[in-house]
Structure formats: structure tokens, C-alpha cells
Simulated scan of single mutants.
Amino acid sequence: MSDGKKFHVARHDERELFDRDAINRLLDNQYVAHVGFIDQDNQLPFVIPMGFARDNDRILLHGSTGSRMMRQIAQGIDLCVTVTQLNAIVVARSSFNSSMNYESVMIFGVARVLEESEKDLALERITEKLVPGLSKYGRPLVSKEIAATMIVELSLNKISAKSREGDPLDDDEDVALPIWAGILPIETKLGAPITAANAAGIAVPSHIAN
């Protein structure tokens, strides 16, 4: 792996994203990272979807201490973690020129297992990413739950980011064709809270309702 801070995009390098604030916004707006690695037992590639949180210049991943993947990550294997936000389907006048509007970032490196003394803060960061306010509202974690959880950090030092936006890029000779072209926006948003059957009668707390 390169020691540089940026892995440059080889194909469609005009789509390379350099703005670190934009990269941070992408990471903060998404909930799932796809963690790619080579299984050291059978040398097969795996890509596992995982929840994650960005904390300053690192991302945090967590899983069971009994997880085969987490144990391998703890051994110091190379990782490629990908986060993508799909914004639109781009409909051109031909299937060849149709595309997608998106933002994506690939994070490369070797993760570090957090010490026990570092877990509380990391678990709070992960919890607050998924459900803001739950750390204070919910039942506190007990020691056996914390002990059963492995948390690793991966630095944002080695990244490669791309984005595409805008209209379809039809060939000049296709523009005159009487064929519709445009964008189909994709929106992801949280819906209204649905109370669990065994929580009937309990008011939706403000950190959920808001």
C-alpha cells in the first residue's frame, strides 16, 4: 500500500473528490460501511456490511469478540472499507450513457483494536451516530456487554473518493433524438416512529420524535 494520504482515481479521474469536508459529510450521513478483506484461513475475499461511525479522523467499527471477522481484523490484516451514497439514476438516451449520481469513499489501512479504557467513548460515538440521544436515555451498558464487544478504529489517512452529479452525458449525435433523458432522484429519509408492541403506552421520547 502507498504511504500517501490519497489513492488517486484511475478511471474517470475527473470525478475524484478532494474536499475533506464533503467526504466527512458523506461518512456522517451514511450508516453502513462495506468492509472488504481477504480471509486469512482460506484466502477468499469477503465484503461484510457493518454499522460504523466517524469520529474526527477515524471510523469506528464494532462487533462480537467471538466474530471470526473481528478476530481477523484484530490480527492486523489489510482492509478496504467502502461507503456509498446513491443520489439518482441518470437516464440517458442510450443504455451505454446511462449512469448514477453518487458519492463514495474507499478507506484503506490496518485497523487498531481499542483498549478497554477507550471503549466507553467509542461506544457512545457509535450509539449516537445510530440513535442520537440513546446514550443518555437508554439502559447503560453493563460490563459483560462491553467485554463481549470488540471495537476497532481505522484512520482516514488513506482514502480515495469519487462523486458524479448532473445530467446525462449523451453523445452529440444522440441529443437530437426524440428520446427523453433526465434524472430519477433517490431520497432516503427516516419515517415516523413505530412503537414496539411490548412498549405500548410509553410515549415516544423527544430524541426519537425529533
Rank of each mutant, 00 (worst) to 15 (best):
M1T: 09
D3Y: 12
G4L: 15
F7A: 13
R11D: 13
R11I: 13
D19T: 13
I23W: 00
R25F: 05
L26R: 02
L27N: 02
Q30A: 03
Y31H: 08
V32H: 08
A33I: 05
F37A: 09
Q40D: 11
D41G: 09
P45F: 09
I48L: 15
M50P: 00
G51V: 09
F52G: 04
A53I: 11
R54F: 04
D55I: 11
D57M: 12
T65D: 02
S67C: 03
Q72H: 02
A74C: 08
A74M: 06
Q75N: 09
C80R: 10
A88Q: 12
A88P: 11
N97S: 08
N97G: 01
N101Q: 12
Y102A: 06
M106Y: 03
M106R: 02
I107T: 00
G109K: 06
V110P: 06
K119G: 01
A122G: 03
L123N: 03
E124R: 07
I126E: 05
T127N: 10
E128K: 14
E128H: 14
K136L: 13
R139F: 00
L141G: 04
A148K: 08
I151K: 07
V152F: 03
E153W: 04
N157H: 08
K162E: 02
E165W: 13
G166F: 11
E173R: 04
D174N: 03
V175M: 11
I179S: 07
G182C: 14
I186L: 15
A197Q: 11
N198P: 07
I202S: 09
A203Q: 09
N210A: 06
